[in-house]
Design a protein around this nucleic acid. Sequence first.
DNA 1: GGGATCATTGCTCATCTGAGCAGCGCCGGA
DNA 2: TCCGGCGCTGCTCAGATGAGCAATGATCCC
Lengths: 318, 318
Amino acid sequence: MSDTDELLSIRAAELYYEENQTQDEIGVILRLTRWKVGRLLASAKANGFIRIEIVHPRARRLPIERRLRESTGLTDAIVVSSAGVSSDAELQSRTAQAAADYLTSLRPIPRTLGISWGRTLHDVSLHLKQGWAPGVNVVQINGGVSLNQRTGTAASTAVTIAHKADGSATLLPSPAIFERLETKQAMEADRTVAGVLALARNAQAYVFSAGQADANSALVDSGYLTVEQINELVARGAVGDVVGRYIDKHGRIVDPELNERTVGIQIDQLRRAPLTIAVISGNTKHAIARAVVRNGLCTVLVTDEDTANALLQEKDTP
Amino acid sequence: MSDTDELLSIRAAELYYEENQTQDEIGVILRLTRWKVGRLLASAKANGFIRIEIVHPRARRLPIERRLRESTGLTDAIVVSSAGVSSDAELQSRTAQAAADYLTSLRPIPRTLGISWGRTLHDVSLHLKQGWAPGVNVVQINGGVSLNQRTGTAASTAVTIAHKADGSATLLPSPAIFERLETKQAMEADRTVAGVLALARNAQAYVFSAGQADANSALVDSGYLTVEQINELVARGAVGDVVGRYIDKHGRIVDPELNERTVGIQIDQLRRAPLTIAVISGNTKHAIARAVVRNGLCTVLVTDEDTANALLQEKDTP
DNA sequence: GGGATCATTGCTCATCTGAGCAGCGCCGGA
DNA sequence: TCCGGCGCTGCTCAGATGAGCAATGATCCC
């Protein structure tokens, strides 16, 4: 496009978008035909001179969602806008809200819904509305009786989600990780526990988040792992954890021995499930989000614009 | 508007602006009539959820221009967008460009154009295109043979502007400020100088900038005033200088004695002129811009979005 | 200089959109 | 309970817009 045309397209855009003139009126002002004005406006859009942004906490970014679906093979992607967001916490809250919305709109309503736990899932539970999925049975898919009692622990998250759904909750009464393999195996041998795990393996849908592999992990907070252990995992290639299990960027278990001592469904069971919803948001979680998406650990991703863009850029430069 | 309507208007906006769906198609998706969709979109706009921004160095902000004209009585206002600007220098360059554009589009082309000098005017001169105003006579309206030679001095600015116009330049061969009143009077008595001043007084249009009253003033740089003198002026209420003369926020000369020793047209001559174009940009210049605009020193203001908004806010809270 | 090619222009026509209006239902007061 | 008022809904219709097309004109390569 010529230089004067570029300038004209800007003048036209000013009159069209800021002064609400019709293309015809702009034509008179700029001494152009209305068709020329229309083309100038189209070129201004095409060149990215016109930026249209939807500024709202509930706004999504559909074009990014589409590109994500196309480039990753996800069956669905929910990307919340980060326009006007000042803190990571706000972004994560928006994402949790979007996840709650997505769950609410799920049809058919899954009979059993497997969930993990953590800050994100707790946040999702808070955003759900009463009666969001009548009759659903919420099953906890990985262990997590917190060692130091706080709100937001595994059990309370599951109970809240189930309660708000007017459904029932099935809890997994077990720590996330055992110190000794024998203890873990003994626990799994228990009829009740085995029943819960069987239910978890057969859930119709799963919702889980993922954690970055660093000292702020919920597993460290809860006392299952030490900072030193995390550092060791990172040194061996861990990017983060999914349902309590640390994976590297290829989606592989980093420490098989640790993995054996971890209670809950296996990573491969997520891979095989038809509907697995990952809720991952925040600037520190780009790496683990990539690992989850690239290795087919989820079929639906709920995330924020920045994380989504990071995923797309990865794709563009293989 | 109800909560669900708000959410619907966001969904509609996403589909309309990001996915380029027609209101009819959106109606089918959201199970609404197309009229309802149209109203939702209108309400989304009205509530400010839709933000349309023109991102381009040459973009202007017409609504702000209009409000400025209405609230100040300026005959014209040019406000450049500050979208995507990272530095004050970039903003000033944009403003200078806009001033050059405005001068180029002036009709009828003024026969004599009075100009001041300084960083801003120098910048404007660089942005003018060859042949921008054939035959114009550019007259320097205030003294300013720089004491330390640099580009961007009074003479070179006037010459550049005149040269690019394919016109002629009339320089004022005089310092900006004399130390002794008698010397100044003697200088003014000189036939040549008197002739230039007469020409300057009768110019058909003026272009000038204004400086903030601080140590960075061009008058300090050029050696006409010391930092101590500036501080003294500030203490007496000076907010900045126009054509080398320091004024307070009421547009009054701060130091009549200093004013007498300053060579060039008087502030009152600007006030009486039919077309005076002030080019003022930058976050430090809000105060002097206000003084210039409020006291009728210019009929046309070329400025940046931030300065314009500062002026408007002043007006809103008198 | 003479085509061949391709971008640009102004147009027709179908579609999309906003203004204005009548009908409907909801709500509060008699 | 009935009635008036108010706001929302869906409609008509005119105006605004975008897609597609033929004519024009510029450019390039012989």
